[in-house]
């Protein structure tokens, strides 16, 4: 890959202006996937001194600076505590420690990577994104939009909750990308079922969630129906990691297990 210029932004306004000058100008996150995803960068814009890498807690939210590395995410007590630690679990299973020490949550979200293991639990937790210009939007809204105006992601906001969570990654080896990944969250009586690496960007199974949320008592029959509904409503494709049919089958199985787990272990 080629990088022509490196620019240390003076402030966020300066960074955004530089970013908007050309489609070949890119903001630097951790750089873990840069070589594999970009061939040419005219100007690489440095932000690490302007965007936080801290994880802080307010009364209502866990706030994660966009420059926070996946390793820091995987070991932080608040990330491990809430939602049964599904975000920490997902982070811990991404590549090796060396990659987790450079890859950032901001880079993962901004890249909208189809193979991402982080987007799935983040989506299930209904997290919000704080951008420099647009302010706060939901991750769901961000992922659904095909084209977005250029902006700088500052923080990821996760609502503190006693919700139960489940995450499972299906992969051939510990170092490989997911064949598919599944996250299930039960927050009181609200269910969120999300599937990623289909191999398309993480998505919520809306019909399945609606069925679960409108059913008073969740029994085995509802669980099986919801799991099948989710696998049917989401689209799957084939690539060298797995066939669409296989992805669909394992998705149904792991959603079923996820629902059983969050219901059985409900507080």
């Amino acid at each position: 890959m080629e990088i022509k210029n490196y620019y240390v932004a003076k402030d966020l306004d300066d960074a955004l202006q530089k970013f908007m000058l050309s489609s070949d100008n890119h903001l630097l996150g951790g750089g873990a996937w840069m070589k594999n995803s970009l061939r040419h960068i005219d100007t690489a814009i440095e932000l690490s001194h302007l965007v936080s890498n801290d994880i802080t807690e307010t009364k209502e939210f866990i706030e994660i600076g966009a420059m926070c590395t996946l390793h820091d995410l995987s070991i932080h007590p608040a990330i491990i505590k809430y939602y049964d630690g599904i975000l920490a679990q997902a982070s811990k299973q991404i590549m090796g420690i060396t990659v987790r020490n450079i890859a950032t949550i901001g880079g993962t979200i901004a890249g909208k990577y189809a193979f991402s293991d982080l987007l799935t639990p983040l989506l299930a937790m209904n997290c919000q994104l704080m951008f420099y210009r647009q302010g706060i939007i939901t991750l769901e809204e961000y992922l659904q939009s095909a084209i977005r105006e250029k902006d700088i992601l500052l923080k990821v906001l996760i609502k503190k909750s006693t919700a139960k969570g489940y995450f499972h990654k299906v992969a051939k080896t510990a170092l490989d990308f997911s064949i598919v990944n599944v996250a299930v969250v039960k927050d009181n009586q609200n269910f969120s079922v999300c599937v990623g690496a289909r191999p398309q960007i993480a998505a919520k199974a809306f019909k399945a969630c609606e069925l679960l949320n409108s059913s008073g008592v969740i029994n085995q029959e509802i669980i099986e129906k919801a799991a099948k509904m989710a696998a049917d409503e989401l689209t799957f494709s084939s690539n060298f990691r797995g066939q669409a049919e296989y992805r669909k089958m394992v998705t149904e199985t792991y959603i079923k297990r996820g629902l059983q787990e969050v219901i059985t272990n409900a507080r």
Binding site: I3, Y6, L28, G31, A32, M34, K35, A44, E46, S48, H71, I97, T98, V99, N101, I102
Partner: peptide
């Protein structure tokens, strides 16, 4: 190791 943390040097820009 960068500041004591293991990282893949193939993916870190020296200029940073």
């Amino acid at each position: 190791l960068i500041e004591g943390k293991p990282v893949p040097s193939c993916s870190v820009l020296t200029i940073r």
